[in-house]
């Protein structure tokens, strides 16, 4: 990796990440974030993560599965956030592999709501 020496170089990385994310949306790629902080791991998020990484390609769903830090919903771990192309991100709690299966088959495939949906209750700053 070449060291970044200017703000423009930094900005180019940011712009290319934004571009990639835009392209993923256009290609219909689903984004799934799995909260994998200590708290999530302790309640079994690793098996949820592995299940998603394994099952989504098997079921021919193009998806990008990310590990993230804590989403803040300790009462509902393991938590995942699913972003369907063109839709607002949806957070689901208590996602063991069985619920992950439901989410894949019903929410990701058909856009139906499933149990465990957590309404987003925060706003965050975005850095320009």
């Amino acid at each position: 990796m070449e060291r970044i020496r200017t703000a423009e170089q930094l900005h180019r990385i940011r712009a290319s990440r934004e571009q990639m994310s835009l392209e993923r949306r256009e290609q219909g790629i689903v984004e799934v974030r799995v909260a994998l902080a200590t708290c999530g791991l302790a309640s079994g998020a690793k098996s949820t993560y592995e299940y998603l990484v394994e099952e989504l390609p098997k079921r021919h769903i193009e998806a990008r599965v990310l590990r993230t830090g804590c989403m803040g919903y300790c009462y509902a771990e393991p938590t995942i956030e699913v972003t369907l192309p063109g839709a607002e991100p949806m957070v689901f709690g208590g996602v063991d592999p069985a619920r992950a299966d439901q989410i894949i088959e019903r929410y990701i495939r058909q856009g139906e709501m499933v149990d465990g949906h957590i309404p987003r209750n925060y706003e965050k700053v975005t850095l320009e």
Binding site: R14, T68, Y122, V125
Partner: peptide, 29 residues
């Protein structure tokens, strides 16, 4: 409503991927 400043990237980025962080504005400050 909550307002996340310190937690702005928690649960959003992959903490092991620096470019994911840069994509949210890391190191611009």
């Amino acid at each position: 409503t909550q307002l996340r400043i310190a937690l702005r990237n928690c649960g959003v980025i992959d903490p092991e991927d620096i470019e994911d962080a840069i994509g949210q504005g890391a190191y611009a400050a």
